[in-house]
Deep mutational scan, measured.
Amino acid sequence: VKKMAKAIMADPNKADEVYKKWADKGYTLTQMSNFLKSKTAGKYDRVYNGYVIHLD
């Protein structure tokens, strides 16, 4: 998940494709939050927020 999150950060155009894969795998927002937690607070906030919007 972190590898794909980094791919989104490097190229935001990949976001919809990645979010669809995550949704197809049934990842919940709680799971995504836990996967994307980082020592650098807020590092993956943009990715998480994008997934929230995708699921909505």
Rank of each mutant, 00 (worst) to 15 (best):
V1F: 08
K2A: 05
K2M: 07
K2H: 05
K2Y: 00
K2F: 00
K3Y: 08
M4L: 11
A5M: 03
A5D: 03
A5E: 02
A5F: 03
K6F: 06
K6L: 12
K6D: 15
K6M: 13
A7F: 07
A7M: 15
A7W: 08
I8C: 07
M9C: 09
M9V: 07
A10V: 09
A10K: 14
D11A: 06
D11L: 03
D11E: 08
P12T: 05
P12Q: 08
N13A: 13
N13R: 13
K14H: 07
K14A: 10
K14D: 03
K14S: 09
A15Q: 08
A15C: 07
A15E: 04
D16L: 12
D16E: 13
E17S: 11
V18D: 02
V18E: 02
Y19Q: 00
Y19F: 09
Y19R: 00
K20H: 10
K20L: 07
K20M: 09
K20I: 08
K21S: 14
K21G: 11
W22P: 01
W22V: 00
W22G: 00
W22A: 00
W22H: 00
W22D: 00
A23E: 08
A23W: 07
A23C: 13
D24F: 07
K25T: 11
K25A: 15
K25F: 14
K25D: 11
K25S: 14
K25N: 12
G26P: 03
G26S: 05
Y27R: 00
Y27M: 04
T28D: 08
T28P: 01
T28R: 00
T28I: 05
T30G: 12
T30F: 13
T30C: 13
Q31K: 05
Q31W: 06
Q31I: 09
Q31T: 05
M32E: 03
M32C: 07
M32H: 00
M32K: 00
S33Q: 14
S33C: 14
N34Y: 13
N34G: 12
F35K: 03
F35S: 03
L36Q: 01
L36A: 00
K37E: 12
K37I: 09
K37T: 10
S38P: 02
S38H: 08
S38T: 09
S38N: 05
K39N: 13
K39H: 13
T40P: 15
T40A: 10
A41H: 11
A41E: 14
A41W: 09
G42M: 05
G42D: 07
K43P: 05
Y44C: 07
Y44M: 01
D45G: 04
D45L: 08
R46L: 14
R46E: 15
R46W: 15
R46P: 11
V47T: 01
V47R: 00
V47I: 12
V47G: 00
Y48Q: 02
Y48I: 13
N49L: 14
N49D: 14
N49M: 14
G50I: 05
G50D: 07
G50C: 08
G50H: 04
Y51Q: 01
Y51G: 01
V52R: 14
V52W: 08
V52K: 14
H54S: 05
H54L: 05
H54C: 05
L55D: 02
L55V: 04
L55F: 04
L55K: 00
D56G: 15
D56L: 15
D56P: 01
D56Q: 15
D56M: 15
D56H: 13
D56Y: 14
